[in-house]
């Protein structure tokens, strides 16, 4: 049991932290939502009603989409884009998808390689890009969920202000949709750019996200 917990501690710790912060967001989001209702002289709603509201849904999904976009861009971008001196980058001469031997696919697969790495054709192509493709799919689904829930939440506010509701196509062209979207994207992008360049000159002993403490600043693609 202890070994099982240790072997999966990274996933388990972050998944637990996710559930706790989601619960926290639900509680404070509920309080904030009811404050807005009181301002408009409307009756407050229960926590259950808030958890089933489009306001809660749009607040959660707008953050999910940007996180999955961040990972998708990072996974696909780092195939081609380089940063000299960063452990997040490949060496300068390795830009691109690399050859089959380096990637251990097809005839170069080993006995312990996943079956789809040894396969030829579409299965190998799919498996070779599966991490980025799943992140891209989760980003698009999250963004879609944000737009659908956002339409409903936006219309609730508009109806409260005696304004006519908009449909989905109207909402995705609205300032509200793009404000929610871009404020999340900009924060992810500055964090990625910071990580790429700060890891050239700074170190975190023991972290695979960092170079070894004594590695030279110009060493690229070396992980601790």
């Amino acid at each position: 049991m202890r070994r099982c917990l240790r072997d999966n501690s990274l996933t388990l710790t972050f998944a637990t932290a996710f559930l706790l912060t989601l619960a926290g967001q639900a509680l404070v989001g509920h309080a904030e939502f009811n404050n807005g209702l009181l301002v408009d002289s409307l009756a407050p709603v229960s926590l259950t009603a808030y958890l089933m509201s489009s306001d809660f849904a749009v607040d959660v999904t707008e953050n999910w989409q940007s996180e999955y976009l961040q990972f998708f861009l990072y996974i696909f971008g780092t195939v081609w884009l380089l940063q000299r001196g960063s452990p997040e980058s490949k060496e300068m001469d390795r830009a691109g998808p690399e050859d089959d031997e380096t990637q251990r696919v097809g005839a170069h697969a080993r006995d312990d390689s996943p079956r789809w790495a040894a396969a030829e054709g579409i299965r190998q192509k799919l498996f070779s890009r599966s991490l980025g493709l799943v992140m891209a799919a989760l980003f698009l689904l999250s963004w879609l969920a944000q737009s659908v829930a956002g339409t409903a939440a936006y219309n609730e506010l508009r109806l409260r202000n005696l304004q006519p509701p908009v449909d989905w196509s109207g909402y995705i062209l609205s300032a509200d949709f793009w404000s929610r979207t871009l404020q999340n994207w900009q924060s992810e992008l500055i964090a990625v750019a910071s990580m790429a360049i700060l890891s050239v000159y700074l170190r975190q002993r023991g972290s695979p996200e960092s170079k070894p403490v004594g590695a030279p600043h110009h060493a690229t693609g070396v992980e601790g």
Partner: peptide, 30 residues
């Protein structure tokens, strides 16, 4: 690896079901 595989499936399931739930909330509140 059995637990690891179970966590992999659980993670994808929670995220996909969560997204389906949030999309449904938006659709039912139109």
């Amino acid at each position: 690896m059995t637990v690891t595989k179970a966590l992999f499936v659980l993670c994808l399931t929670v995220v996909v079901c969560g997204l389906a739930y949030f999309t449904a909330l938006g659709l039912t509140h139109r």
